[in-house]
């Protein structure tokens, strides 16, 4: 499952999408909206994506992960729109036969997503709002 969604990310749906009885290791990473950034109290976050490119890049990351590790099931979901504190902004689930490769692949997927997928966020904090200073892809 590769998805951008303006709706609340459902963990049940995520789990259903990586159901596979040959996998004994399922690693899930969830990113959620934190109440502070660079000394500021954050109240909420807006996420904006370049949808077509983001989905293309997310699919490419999943494909690369499948080449590197023996993955049976993989899911990447990123939220868009206005998120409150504590809401899940990103979910990665990787199911493999064993936990070692599931941990490694999940780590690779979230790290690569942050470097290559065109998504931006605007913080709402005490006294204002601003786009979060992002990162430039390597190479």
């Amino acid at each position: 499952m590769i998805q951008l969604t303006p709706e609340k990310i459902s963990i049940d749906t995520l789990l259903d999408s990586v159901e596979d009885h040959s996998t004994g290791g399922l690693v899930i990473f969830l990113g959620r909206v934190r109440n502070h950034a660079e000394g500021r109290q954050v109240r909420a976050m807006d996420y904006e994506a370049f949808d077509e490119m983001a989905l293309t890049k997310m699919a490419a990351i999943a494909a690369t992960a499948r080449e590197k590790w023996p993955i049976k099931k993989i899911a990447l979901v990123h939220r868009t729109g206005h998120l409150k504190l504590g809401e899940i902004s990103v979910a990665v689930a990787v199911a493999c036969a064993h936990r070692e490769e599931a941990f490694a692949a999940c780590r690779f997927v979230i790290d690569t997503l942050k470097k290559t997928v065109p998504i931006w966020k605007k913080e709402y904090f005490e006294g204002g709002e601003d786009w979060v200073e992002g990162i430039l892809p390597e190479g």
Binding site: V90, P118, G134, I135
Partner: peptide
């Protein structure tokens, strides 16, 4: 052509 600010997903 897409103009992309530094990326900040996740």
């Amino acid at each position: 052509l897409a103009l992309l600010p530094p990326l900040a997903g996740g």
